[in-house]
């Protein structure tokens, strides 16, 4: 086998691998995931049944659905004074093991405190691509977030001086 043949074989193999990559066949929706998250919490902050129902339609049903009743009671006391700032948005380069395209939106959340001022928390939210609807859908129940490792952390915690 001469060098020519080897090079040709490598080129063909590279083309085949590129052809197998699903990314080429997926186009992400026009509305980016961070915009979806902001809209979602905007609806929750607004309050009311209809807005809550609309927010529910933004949630992915890939890993199970939530009844409207439950969703409403889980979210209706979300404070309208909470401020959200998106700190990072990561679009997927490839699908996960289940073939889902998952974007990650990280945000900083500021909420009024009874001790005065505001306190900040961070939140990471996954969004699953709904290829049929061409929309990013929110993984509200955090089924795709890996958190099982938390369970093995030390049972005892104390404040550092």
């Amino acid at each position: 086998m001469n060098l020519h043949t080897v090079a040709l074989a490598l080129i063909v193999a590279a083309l085949l691998v590129a052809g197998c990559d699903k990314k080429g066949s997926v186009s992400f929706p026009d509305t980016p995931p961070d915009k979806v998250v902001m809209t979602f919490f905007g609806l929750l902050a607004e309050g009311g049944k209809l807005t809550n129902k609309e927010a529910l339609t933004m949630i992915s049903e890939r890993n199970g659905s939530i009844s409207p009743d439950n969703f409403r009671r889980w979210t209706e006391n979300y404070s309208k004074d909470t401020k959200i700032e998106i700190t990072k948005t990561t679009l997927p380069a490839s699908p996960d093991d289940h073939g889902d395209w998952i974007a990650r939106v990280e945000m900083q959340v500021k909420t009024p405190s009874i001790f005065g001022g505001e306190y900040a928390t961070t939140s990471a939210m996954h969004l699953i691509l709904d290829e049929k609807l061409k929309q990013w859908k929110i993984d509200f129940l955090a089924e795709t977030l890996e958190e099982d490792s938390y369970r093995t952390l030390p049972a005892e915690a104390r404040a550092q001086p």
């Binding site: 959340v109 306190y119 928390t121 990471a124 939210m125 915690a157």
Partner: peptide
């Protein structure tokens, strides 16, 4: 006291000090 809900916090479990708040 106060109680409320915020977007799902992703902080690691444990205790941190933020200003004078544990």
């Amino acid at each position: 006291s106060s109680r409320g809900w915020v977007p799902r916090d992703d902080g690691k479990p444990g205790i941190t000090k933020e200003g004078d708040v544990h």
